[in-house]
C-alpha cells in the first residue's frame, strides 16, 4: 500500500473510531470527547502555523476569542441567526489574524513570540475594558434558543457530539489535504529553511501571512464552535493560559503531523481530568509535561512514532 493510502486510512480510521466511541462510551466520556474535538480544532489551527510553517505564536488565544466573541456578540447584540453569526465569528478571527500578521511578521524568532504575546494581552485587556458588553471574566451564557443551528438542537448530548464531530472532521480532512498541496509543502519549506525558500523564488512573507490567516481562522472557528456547543463566552478564553494550551497540546501530540493535535488534546484532557481529582493545582501537570517534552521528546507522541515506527505517517 502506498503511504498516501495508508494516511488516508489512518484519517478515516480516526473518524470512524470517533463515531463508534459515541455508541459505546458512557455519557460522561461522550461529553469530554465533544470538548476534546472542539479543542482539537483549535490545536490543528495552531499546528498549521507552528508545526508546518515553523512560526511559534504565543498569542493564539486572541484568535480563539475573536471567533468566540464575534459569534457570541453577533447573537447577543446583533440578533444574527446562528449561521450568519458563525461566519461573523470566523471572519473576525481571520481579519484579526491578517492585521496581526501584517505587523508581527515583520519580526522573527523570539521577537515574534513576544509580539504575539503582547497583542494577545492587549486583546484580553480590551475584552475586560468593554466589560459592559463582554461581561469580562464572568462571561455570558447563550441560551438554548439562541443556539439552534438549522433547527438542530446542539444542546443535547447527541446533537453536540455530532456537531463537534462534523466540524472536527471537516477541519481535520481539509487541513490534512492542505498540507499535501504545493502550498502546504512550501510552508514546510519555509519552516525548514526560509532563506532557501526565498532563493527558490517563493515569497516567504506572503506564505507566512497566508498561513497565519488560515491558522487564525481555524482557531477562531474553534472558538465559535465552543460558544455554539457549550453556550458560554468568557474572557478566560483570551488569557495567556489559552495561548499556551495549544502549544502544549501540539508539542505533546506531535508538531507538524496531522493527528498530533488531536492526540495531544485527548491525552492532556484526561491527564488534567484525572489529576484535578487530587489537587486544584492541576496546571502543575501541564508544566511538568511541557518541561519533560522539551527535554526528552521534542517531537511529541505522533512525531516520535513517525520517526521510529511509521515513517509513512502524514
Amino acid at each position: 500500500m502506498t503511504s498516501f493510502n495508508k494516511s488516508n486510512l489512518l484519517h478515516f480510521g480516526v473518524l470512524a473510531g470517533l463515531v463508534i466511541l459515541f455508541f459505546i462510551l458512557p455519557t460522561y466520556h461522550v461529553g469530554v470527547l465533544s470538548r476534546v474535538m472542539v479543542m482539537a480544532i483549535y490545536a490543528m489551527g495552531f499546528n498549521l502555523l507552528f508545526g508546518y510553517t515553523g512560526l511559534l505564536s504565543l498569542g493564539h488565544a486572541m484568535f480563539f476569542a475573536a471567533g468566540m466573541y464575534g459569534f457570541g456578540l453577533a447573537i447577543k447584540f446583533g440578533g444574527f441567526p446562528v449561521p450568519a453569526a458563525f461566519v461573523v465569528g470566523v471572519l473576525s478571527a481571520a481579519l484579526l489574524a491578517l492585521v496581526v500578521g501584517l505587523l508581527a511578521l515583520r519580526t522573527a524568532g523570539v521577537a515574534f513570540m513576544i509580539v504575539t504575546l503582547m497583542f494577545a494581552q492587549t486583546a484580553y485587556l480590551v475584552v475586560l475594558y468593554f466589560g459592559k458588553y463582554t461581561r469580562g471574566d464572568e462571561g455570558f451564557i447563550l441560551q438554548q434558543a439562541e443556539r439552534s443551528l438549522f433547527g438542530l438542537d446542539v444542546t443535547t448530548e447527541t446533537g453536540r457530539y455530532f456537531t463537534a464531530f462534523t466540524l472536527f472532521a471537516v477541519c481535520f480532512i481539509a487541513l490534512a489535504k492542505l498540507v499535501q498541496t504545493p502550498f502546504g509543502k512550501r510552508l514546510v519549506a519555509i519552516r525548514e529553511n526560509e532563506e532557501r525558500a526565498r532563493m527558490l523564488g517563493y515569497d516567504a512573507g506572503r506564505y507566512k501571512l497566508y498561513a497565519l490567516v488560515i491558522s487564525g481562522a481555524v482557531s477562531g472557528l474553534a472558538g465559535v464552535s465552543y460558544a455554539l456547543l457549550f453556550g458560554y463566552v468568557g474572557a478566560t478564553f483570551s488569557t495567556v493560559q489559552y495561548s499556551i494550551f495549544p502549544l502544549l497540546w501540539v508539542l505533546l501530540g506531535g508538531a507538524g503531523t496531522t493527528i498530533g493535535p488531536f492526540i495531544g488534546v485527548l491525552f492532556m484532557f484526561y491527564l488534567i481530568d484525572i489529576s484535578s481529582g487530587y489537587t486544584n493545582a492541576y496546571m502543575l501537570i501541564a508544566g511538568v509535561v511541557l518541561v519533560l517534552l522539551t527535554v526528552f521528546a521534542p517531537k511529541g507522541i505522533a512525531g516520535t512514532l513517525k520517526a521510529r515506527v511509521f515513517p509513512w505517517m502524514p
Binding site: 529553511n193 526565498r198 532563493m199 515569497d203
Partner: peptide, 28 residues
C-alpha cells in the same frame, strides 16, 4: 525587486555555504 521576484524572472542561485532543506528528502 526583492530576491524572490528576481528568482521568478529566471535567476537561480546556489549558496556558497550549502543550504538545502535538511529535513526533507532529496526528491522533495
Amino acid at each position: 525587486l526583492p530576491a524572490h521576484s528576481r528568482i521568478q524572472l529566471g535567476l537561480a542561485y546556489t549558496f556558497q555555504i550549502t543550504s538545502v532543506f535538511r529535513g526533507l528528502s532529496v526528491y522533495e
